[in-house]
Amino acid sequence: MAFTDEQLERYSRHIILKEVGVKGQKKLMAGKVLIIGAGGLGAPAAMYLAAAGVGTIGIADADVVDLSNLQRQVIHTTDDLGKPKVQSAAETMKAINPDVNVVTYEDFIAANNIADIIKDYDFVLDGTDNFPAKFLINDACVQAGIPFCHAGIIRFRGQLMTWVPGEGPCYRCVFKEPPPKDAVPTCKQAGVIGAMAGVIGCLQAMEAVKFLTGAGELLTGKLLTYDALTNTIRTVNIPEDPDCAVCSDHPTITELIDYEQAACDGLSKDDVAEAAAE
């Protein structure tokens, strides 16, 4: 596969890099990344990965674009209100880079469809906004042996970690079970700075780029945390749990689980309007 002159120019800043070069750019162009959630985290990740020329980008989300999304979900614009998020995201990605093959899944991921969706991908980005989905993505990726990057954001803070088979702990090593419904606030309840989604979503895109090109070190065995208010970025070592319910050699969770969503995560626009009126 030889580059066209247009590709040489488009990807020149990558090809110049010693860590990427021709080989790395070809790996990006052959790469398949699935982004689950076309929201705050998924938006910047999808845009940068499309711009980087990642060959196939899958994007999964069942929602439509809502006015309250636009404060941070920069892949969607005011003209996209009411449009399925995956359609709006695909249009933006194709506009940035027509070379990219975008595959859309207008569906909520669940125990009965996730294994089928992730199986064709090299790397998965968790850009979801709730614990049931985050645990489901962890369990499905671990069981299928597909590397993935987990992330979470709230208020002025964010964090992420990467799992690769045999190279460190999974999300469940660190967090055993989803917290009880509404015990830990989500960003819908607690708020989040839009730029935080940008920072952490971009770091997830960076993990995908490093994974595909083989450049540098991944965030395996490490949780990167960012606190914007104190300008603190830390990389905390996280150990493997030898008794992990999913990734240990004697797993107790061998089937995928649909945990119950927190009440507030399921709120429709009407519910919000109703709550505001009270």
Binding site: G40, G127, C187, K188, A190, V192, A197, V236
Partner: peptide, 11 residues
């Protein structure tokens, strides 16, 4: 000592 927190947002 490190404290690791649940962070569920992403939407």
């Amino acid at each position: 000592v490190e404290f690791l927190y649940f962070m569920g947002g992403g939407c």
